[in-house]
Amino acid sequence: MEIHIPTPLRAFTDRQETVSVPATTVAEGLENLVQKHSAMRAHLFTPEGKLRSFVNVYLNDEDVRYLPAKEDTTVADTDELTIIPSIAGGTPAAAGCCR
């Protein structure tokens, strides 16, 4: 399946916008993603292996949190996972970071 990587996380996927991984469930897809790009792991999962609460994962256009089987939902090759980043930008010059 294809996983869409948001810009802030593309630094960890060699700038790739989508990553293809084999998967039968949402959880497996994410696990294969972080296997492939190990630096992603800390950004997506807590040290205990739980998906971080500020990371939103969508299966097609549905929030995985609201699917009955959640991360255990089975997926097909044609399904798409999208990781939604928290972005706050509006006027980056005033963001206190990049002065």
Partner: peptide, 10 residues
């Protein structure tokens, strides 16, 4: 609401 980052917006 609107938000932007690099080449991406919401």
């Amino acid at each position: 609401y609107g938000s932007i980052f690099r080449f991406e917006g919401q």
